[in-house]
Design a protein around this nucleic acid. Structure first.
Lengths: 200, 200
DNA sequence: CCTACCGATCGGTAGG
DNA sequence: CCTACCGATCGGTAGG
């Protein structure tokens, strides 16, 4: 009985999911182009040809990772958009939820930020369209804050890029077992960045 | 006579240098692993085999780019280290000279930041050692500023990573023909980041 | 999930 | 700087 339950639990991580997770790990460490399907198969203890029973192509794995992360980023932002409060409060919340998505899966985030360019059309264009849309959320909050005199006057696109670049580096150094918790990182990063843009 | 001078000027860009420059372009656009020597050769109008009269290997090109950029970053910082003034002033200058190195050659910077991991040992270790040394310059200024009560108390490593991440994204969006000049970017980025860490 | 295999392409060398 | 070529490896398929 116990064994049966154990097996059921184990099987919840499907082979396909195992492939996705291991690929995420390898794409992060070596990059998409430098990771071969034989690499991936060896790490899973199977032959390269066997991978194709579960996935259609190497690129499909990349697409899954990138679009899944895109969904997570958008989902995290939906609370912020409808939230009320000052531009300052909403920006801080936006920065924090963005960081939480990254710290929850730093490896998938790394692939999302660094390997998307290896997707072919039409996936590439769709991806870039989503990214633009996402970035405009930050630009809108910046614009509002500037109009309401909460933020310093600045080029909004420049501001957005400066804010997001700090957030989008987190996956390179954040360690779940490190001395700063995910929540620490989110709070401290957001505070520092808000202080940089707010009117004094 | 005019033609002679013209030819001399043209020849100053040696074939080796042309290879380096075109490779930098391609490594930036497609990544090191996804750029083939045949790609590179075609862009130069020669055969792949001919490249090897000028360079030893594909990786040698990467090493040249990465270590040349490392040198430029260190050289730019040498003025700041011996400079006097408050920690705030020195940090601002450090941020600005760092940005100037990036905006002067965004493509080489992109390779420097994103493709270094494809170097083999012992180059990889030497590179990472240099990076650590470079980052410690920023950590030291941060420490000094915190002790002197110019900066907020913070984990210095966290502060360094947050500052540098904003700077190290510049190569992805800076356009020489854009509305912000290189000097604009350096000044505005440094100001915003300094405001984020300084004690109010 | 395996064996057996495909055509294409890789970085690089020999020899001129 | 070229032709001619090397062994290794690539993503992927056929068939079981």
């Amino acid at each position: 009985m116990f064994i049966f339950v154990f097996m059921l639990t184990e099987e919840k991580v499907s082979r396909k999911q195992q492939i996705q997770e291991k690929a995420t790990e390898l794409f992060t460490a070596k990059g998409y182009a430098a990771t071969s399907m034989r690499d991936l198969a060896n790490h899973l203890g199977i032959e390269a040809a066997s991978l194709y029973s579960h996935i259609k192509s190497k690129e499909e794995i990349l697409q899954n990772i990138c679009f899944k992360m895109a969904e997570l980023f958008f989902a995290s932002m939906s609370e912020v958009r409808k939230g009320e409060g000052s531009a300052t409060e909403r920006m801080k919340e936006a920065l924090k939820v963005h960081v939480r998505v990254i710290t929850k899966d730093p490896a998938a985030s790394a692939v999302f930020f660094n390997e998307w360019r290896h997707m072919s059309e039409p996936f590439l264009s769709e991806f870039l369209g989503m990214r633009n849309e996402y970035e405009s959320i930050f630009i809108d909050i910046l614009k509002e804050g500037i109009v309401k005199n909460e933020f310093k006057p600045m080029d909004e696109k420049f501001g957005m890029l400066t804010l997001l670049s700090s957030l989008n580096w987190v996956h390179r150094w954040y360690k779940p077992e490190g001395k700063m918790s995910a929540e620490d990182v989110a709070e401290k990063l957001a505070s520092m960045l808000i202080d940089g843009i707010k009117k004094i």
